[in-house]
Amino acid sequence: MGYKLSKEAFDACLAKLSQDCDVYAPVRMAGGNPFSDTDCIRYGKIKSIEEVVFDEKSDYSYKEILLPLSETLFYFTEKEVKEADPKEKGGVIFLRSCDLHAVKRMDDIYLYNGFEDYYYKRLRERVKFVLMGCKASFENCFCASMGTNESGDYDLAVEPEGDGFLLDCKLEEWQELFAGRGTERAYEPSHVAENPVEVKVPENLSAKVSESEMWREYDSRCINCGRCNFACPTCTCFTMQDLFYTDNGKVGERRRVQASCMVDGFTDVAGGGCYRAKNGDRMRFKVLHKVLDYKQRFGYHMCVGCGRCDDICPEYISFSGAVNKLDQAMTEVETDEQE
């Protein structure tokens, strides 16, 4: 059902939702960017719809809510283990179509990949999603190429119009909440039909492309900072850390911490070995996982075309540019095979 609400009416709805849920959305954090005297748009709790940044792309994705940077799984003593308590409230997350598609990727990894991740599932089951309509493409976005530029899999959709907000509510338990404060108005979420950046994944792409010389370019260009992984809404790798308390070295907690395939140590093994010591090999692994390996397993590409990796790279390495080089790289390796 579609409605139009004033800012005050929407805030009243948020106040009602906040009684049982923490509401998260992209907000402007003044001076929060790693670069000096610049702001950062990142996910945080909101109390008013005016706090939501609709006209700019967030530097980081919703992922920090469903997969915290650091999450305590359990506490341990010498004699017992205690599971960490779940969050007291559920969650409501404002996100764009590309990120909503990324949730499906994350669900496939943590829920439908041969096992169910208990800690992810207990959080995921209590989260609702609010789609933010996109009237125009942002810099470096290529969601249209990846087929993630529109989505109907939301609980609520919203975007500003004039002095109010248009919304479409699909969740039956929220219908009365919004209907009682707004006027009925037909609304379909805006979405972009094309982006300035276009990406084409070769139809004949195979693992043979790993032998191409294109990856050597990134040996020197990439500085293995891992920022692309942490900004990406579909990167799901983590590591475990055991923290021992100083007052008793046999008591502590185990944490799940986000990890990055681009940083040193990710592929280190016992005996001093490292599977991907060169930065170009790490880039190869990341790119092919997003547009080859994942599709072979699940039937669709892992990358959702949000472009955050291109936005955030301090060395101006373009992921979309790397994907568009794959066609030439496949020609290269196939020609070498014939010679």
Rank of each mutant, 00 (worst) to 15 (best):
M1W: 05
K121L: 09
L243A: 13
A12T: 01
Y187I: 01
D59M: 03
K57W: 04
G164S: 07
Q328E: 11
D107P: 01
S190N: 14
E176Q: 13
G44Q: 05
D55K: 07
N33P: 05
L131S: 09
K87H: 05
W215M: 01
F94L: 10
T148F: 11
F298Y: 12
E198F: 05
V158K: 00
R42F: 09
G147D: 15
M330S: 07
V52G: 00
R284A: 04
A231R: 04
L166W: 02
N324P: 04
M1K: 08
S36A: 15
A9S: 12
F238V: 11
K208V: 04
D99R: 02
S320H: 08
D107Y: 00
C306P: 07
P26H: 12
F76H: 07
R126S: 06
V209D: 02
E80M: 10
Y62H: 09
Y110D: 00
M302N: 08
C222H: 07
P189M: 12
E203S: 14
C40N: 14
S58H: 10
F138W: 09
A25P: 06
L67C: 12
S318W: 10
S18K: 11
K290E: 13
Y218F: 13
G2F: 03
G133E: 07
D108Y: 04
L156Y: 05
K128P: 00
E211R: 06
R122D: 10
G164I: 06
A144S: 15
N140C: 12
L177E: 09
C228Y: 08
Y316M: 15
S61Q: 03
I317T: 15
G32A: 05
K63P: 00
